[in-house]
Simulated assay, not measured.
Amino acid sequence: MSGVYDGEAIWSAVDTYFIDRLVTEDEALVHARESSIRTVMPQADVSPSQGAFLGVIARIAGARRVLEFGTLAGYSTIWLARAIGPAGRVVTFEVDERTAAVARDNFIRAGVADRIELVVGPAVDSVRALVDAPVDPFDLVFIDADKPNNPAYLEAALALSRPGTVIIGDNVVRNGAVADPGSSDPRVHGTWALIELLGQDDRIDATALQTVGLKGWDGFAIGVVKRPD
């Protein structure tokens, strides 16, 4: 193929190339992705390649217990629930009841409702209840909710982890805004706080990667909770 695509066009073309060859979406996943239009944040779910990536990471980690901040239509939740198998458990937080109803229907359609606990309400309150309970540690945590609360979510994730737990934070690039020191966007400030904490906390080793594709220019942070020396 000759020539050069312009900007996002080539990102989308490459993403589509990979998705067509590497990602298998059944009817339930397609329906969940498309039903995002009926949620409080339409089309904010991860892309098919990102969903598959989460599933692969869950399998690499041998995850059986997953914690997710931000359910939306449940697209990423389904990928994670399928990756952990029928004996696994996903706890996922969603603030909006109408959106939660969309996700519940999608879980049933995908055949994974029995391995998912959807908790409705502010995630800061929901996760505090888990920390106070306490509950068994999680093997993988996916942080993809309201960005200003990222620091609180990371601290709770660490409290609910064990050595070897994988923690992933989504949307850490925001079209490059993370590198703008003059940004007044509270979502960017929440991302800064997340990155700073990941870099400073001795309990976790982490890095961050930029991504381009159907979701534009963004990225994720990924870390693993350290094992004792």
Rank of each mutant, 00 (worst) to 15 (best):
T24L: 11
E25D: 13
L29D: 01
V30H: 03
H31E: 14
T39K: 13
M41L: 14
M41C: 02
Q43E: 13
V46M: 11
G51I: 04
A52Y: 12
F53C: 11
F53N: 01
L54A: 06
I57C: 07
A58W: 04
A61I: 02
A61H: 07
A61C: 08
G62N: 09
A63I: 05
R64D: 10
R65S: 10
L67Q: 02
L67E: 03
E68L: 01
F69E: 04
T71R: 01
L72R: 07
A73P: 04
A73Y: 03
S76D: 07
W79G: 03
A81T: 04
A81C: 10
R82P: 06
R82I: 03
I84Y: 09
R89I: 03
T92A: 06
E94V: 03
E97D: 15
R98I: 11
V102F: 11
R104H: 11
R104K: 13
F107C: 09
R109A: 14
A110E: 05
V112L: 08
D114F: 00
R115T: 15
I116S: 08
L118N: 09
V120Q: 04
V120S: 06
V120D: 06
D125N: 14
D125R: 13
S126V: 04
S126K: 05
V127P: 06
R128Y: 00
A129Y: 00
A129K: 15
L130M: 15
L130F: 10
D132H: 12
P134C: 08
V135P: 07
F138Q: 07
D139A: 03
L140T: 03
D146S: 10
P148H: 11
